Simulated scan of single mutants.
Amino acid sequence: MTTNPSVSDSTAALTHLDAQGQAHMVDVAAKAQTVRQAIAEATVVMQPQTLATIEAGNAPKGDVLGTARIAGIMAAKQTAHLIPLCHPLPLQKVEVQIVPVPSLPGYQIQATVKTKAETGVEMEALTAVSVAALTLYDMAKGLEKSIEIRSIRLLSKIGGKSGSYSVDS
Protein backbone atom coordinates (compact mmCIF):
# COMPACT_ATOMS: atom_id res chain seq x y z
CA MET A 1 0.00 0.00 0.00
CA THR A 2 1.32 3.44 -0.88
CA THR A 3 1.31 6.35 1.51
CA ASN A 4 -0.15 9.72 0.78
CA PRO A 5 2.70 12.24 0.51
CA SER A 6 0.38 15.07 1.63
CA VAL A 7 -0.15 13.40 5.02
CA SER A 8 2.37 14.67 7.57
CA ASP A 9 4.27 12.64 10.16
CA SER A 10 1.85 13.90 12.81
CA THR A 11 -0.81 11.50 11.48
CA ALA A 12 -0.18 9.14 14.42
CA ALA A 13 -1.75 11.73 16.74
CA LEU A 14 -4.94 11.79 14.68
CA THR A 15 -7.29 9.16 16.07
CA HIS A 16 -9.34 8.52 12.93
CA LEU A 17 -6.39 8.07 10.55
CA ASP A 18 -4.11 5.07 10.34
CA ALA A 19 -0.34 5.18 9.75
CA GLN A 20 -0.94 5.59 6.00
CA GLY A 21 -3.36 8.48 6.50
CA GLN A 22 -6.43 6.42 5.69
CA ALA A 23 -9.65 6.97 7.64
CA HIS A 24 -10.62 4.15 10.00
CA MET A 25 -12.92 3.53 12.94
CA VAL A 26 -11.14 3.88 16.27
CA ASP A 27 -10.76 0.64 18.24
CA VAL A 28 -12.51 1.18 21.57
CA ALA A 29 -12.48 -2.47 22.67
CA ALA A 30 -9.92 -1.90 25.42
CA LYS A 31 -11.82 1.04 26.92
CA ALA A 32 -14.03 0.54 29.95
CA GLN A 33 -17.77 0.92 29.64
CA THR A 34 -18.84 3.97 31.60
CA VAL A 35 -22.01 6.02 31.81
CA ARG A 36 -21.95 8.74 29.16
CA GLN A 37 -24.46 11.51 28.58
CA ALA A 38 -24.63 14.40 26.14
CA ILE A 39 -27.06 17.28 25.77
CA ALA A 40 -27.33 19.25 22.53
CA GLU A 41 -29.59 22.02 21.32
CA ALA A 42 -30.85 23.63 18.13
CA THR A 43 -32.80 26.82 17.62
CA VAL A 44 -35.53 27.17 15.00
CA VAL A 45 -36.68 30.70 14.16
CA MET A 46 -39.91 31.59 12.34
CA GLN A 47 -42.53 34.29 11.92
CA PRO A 48 -44.85 34.88 14.91
CA GLN A 49 -47.87 33.70 12.91
CA THR A 50 -46.15 30.40 12.06
CA LEU A 51 -45.36 29.82 15.73
CA ALA A 52 -48.96 30.64 16.67
CA THR A 53 -50.35 28.23 14.05
CA ILE A 54 -48.10 25.39 15.22
CA GLU A 55 -48.90 26.07 18.88
CA ALA A 56 -52.63 26.05 18.08
CA GLY A 57 -52.24 22.65 16.42
CA ASN A 58 -53.47 23.98 13.06
CA ALA A 59 -50.52 23.15 10.80
CA PRO A 60 -51.67 21.58 7.51
CA LYS A 61 -49.38 18.55 7.89
CA GLY A 62 -50.58 17.70 11.40
CA ASP A 63 -48.66 17.31 14.65
CA VAL A 64 -45.48 19.28 13.90
CA LEU A 65 -43.88 18.97 17.34
CA GLY A 66 -44.77 15.32 17.97
CA THR A 67 -43.44 14.32 14.56
CA ALA A 68 -40.22 16.32 15.08
CA ARG A 69 -39.74 14.77 18.54
CA ILE A 70 -40.10 11.21 17.22
CA ALA A 71 -37.79 12.03 14.27
CA GLY A 72 -35.11 13.26 16.70
CA ILE A 73 -35.34 10.08 18.76
CA MET A 74 -35.15 7.91 15.65
CA ALA A 75 -32.19 9.91 14.34
CA ALA A 76 -30.20 9.42 17.54
CA LYS A 77 -30.69 5.67 17.16
CA GLN A 78 -29.43 5.81 13.55
CA THR A 79 -26.38 8.03 14.06
CA ALA A 80 -23.84 5.31 13.27
CA HIS A 81 -25.54 4.85 9.88
CA LEU A 82 -25.31 8.57 9.11
CA ILE A 83 -21.94 9.73 10.45
CA PRO A 84 -18.88 7.97 9.01
CA LEU A 85 -16.66 6.22 11.59
CA CYS A 86 -19.23 6.70 14.37
CA HIS A 87 -19.66 3.64 16.61
CA PRO A 88 -23.10 2.05 16.97
CA LEU A 89 -24.08 2.41 20.62
CA PRO A 90 -26.68 0.87 22.92
CA LEU A 91 -28.68 3.92 23.89
CA GLN A 92 -30.39 3.76 27.26
CA LYS A 93 -32.10 7.15 26.99
CA VAL A 94 -33.03 9.55 24.22
CA GLU A 95 -35.19 12.49 25.19
CA VAL A 96 -36.10 15.30 22.81
CA GLN A 97 -37.79 18.42 24.16
CA ILE A 98 -39.19 21.13 21.91
CA VAL A 99 -40.07 24.34 23.75
CA PRO A 100 -41.74 27.39 22.21
CA VAL A 101 -39.82 30.64 22.64
CA PRO A 102 -42.11 33.56 21.71
CA SER A 103 -39.24 36.07 21.95
CA LEU A 104 -37.40 34.41 19.01
CA PRO A 105 -40.10 33.64 17.79
CA GLY A 106 -39.58 29.93 17.34
CA TYR A 107 -38.50 26.82 19.20
CA GLN A 108 -35.58 25.60 21.27
CA ILE A 109 -34.94 21.91 20.69
CA GLN A 110 -32.90 19.99 23.26
CA ALA A 111 -31.85 16.34 23.16
CA THR A 112 -30.44 14.32 26.03
CA VAL A 113 -28.80 11.02 25.14
CA LYS A 114 -27.40 8.51 27.63
CA THR A 115 -25.55 5.21 27.34
CA LYS A 116 -23.20 2.92 29.18
CA ALA A 117 -20.50 2.27 26.60
CA GLU A 118 -16.85 2.68 25.61
CA THR A 119 -17.40 5.94 23.74
CA GLY A 120 -19.54 9.05 24.07
CA VAL A 121 -22.93 10.08 22.70
CA GLU A 122 -22.23 13.65 21.56
CA MET A 123 -22.91 12.81 17.93
CA GLU A 124 -26.18 11.10 18.83
CA ALA A 125 -27.41 14.18 20.70
CA LEU A 126 -26.32 16.53 17.89
CA THR A 127 -27.94 14.28 15.27
CA ALA A 128 -31.17 14.17 17.29
CA VAL A 129 -31.56 17.96 17.44
CA SER A 130 -30.51 18.39 13.81
CA VAL A 131 -33.08 15.94 12.48
CA ALA A 132 -35.78 17.22 14.84
CA ALA A 133 -35.14 20.75 13.51
CA LEU A 134 -35.21 19.56 9.90
CA THR A 135 -38.45 17.70 10.55
CA LEU A 136 -39.99 20.75 12.19
CA TYR A 137 -39.07 22.70 9.05
CA ASP A 138 -40.53 20.02 6.79
CA MET A 139 -43.78 19.86 8.75
CA ALA A 140 -44.15 23.67 8.76
CA LYS A 141 -42.75 24.69 5.36
CA GLY A 142 -46.28 24.98 3.98
CA LEU A 143 -46.81 27.81 6.45
CA GLU A 144 -43.46 29.52 5.91
CA LYS A 145 -40.49 28.77 3.69
CA SER A 146 -38.15 31.21 5.48
CA ILE A 147 -37.91 29.24 8.74
CA GLU A 148 -34.29 29.22 9.92
CA ILE A 149 -32.39 26.50 11.76
CA ARG A 150 -29.70 28.13 13.90
CA SER A 151 -27.10 27.33 16.48
CA ILE A 152 -26.84 23.56 16.62
CA ARG A 153 -24.37 22.90 19.42
CA LEU A 154 -23.30 20.63 22.23
CA LEU A 155 -24.36 21.99 25.61
CA SER A 156 -22.73 19.40 27.85
CA LYS A 157 -21.29 15.93 28.12
CA ILE A 158 -20.26 13.68 30.97
CA GLY A 159 -18.19 10.52 31.13
CA GLY A 160 -15.18 9.19 29.34
CA LYS A 161 -11.47 9.91 29.45
CA SER A 162 -11.86 13.57 28.49
CA GLY A 163 -14.19 14.18 31.44
CA SER A 164 -17.06 16.61 31.61
CA TYR A 165 -17.79 19.57 29.37
CA SER A 166 -20.38 22.32 29.67
CA VAL A 167 -20.84 25.53 27.72
CA ASP A 168 -21.45 27.24 31.07
CA SER A 169 -18.04 26.38 32.51
Rank of each mutant, 00 (worst) to 15 (best):
V7C: 08
S10L: 14
A13H: 14
H16D: 08
A19W: 11
A19Q: 15
A23F: 14
M25C: 13
V26S: 12
D27P: 07
V28I: 15
A29T: 15
A32L: 12
Q33C: 14
V35T: 15
A40E: 06
E41I: 01
T43S: 11
V44F: 09
Q49C: 03
L51I: 10
A52C: 10
D63K: 10
T67A: 11
T67E: 05
A68Y: 06
R69G: 02
A76Y: 00
Q78E: 13
H81L: 10
P84D: 06
C86V: 08
L89P: 01
L89E: 03
L91G: 02
E95S: 10
V101A: 10
P102Q: 04
P102T: 06
G106N: 00
V113D: 01
K116N: 14
E118H: 14
E118C: 12
T119Q: 05
T119N: 05
V121L: 05
E124M: 05
A128D: 03
V131Q: 00
V131S: 06
A132R: 01
A133L: 07
A133I: 05
L134H: 06
T135E: 07
K141F: 09
L143E: 06
E144A: 12
E144L: 10
E144N: 13
S146G: 13
E148P: 03
I149D: 06
I152S: 05
S166R: 13
S166A: 14
V167C: 11
D168N: 15
S169R: 12
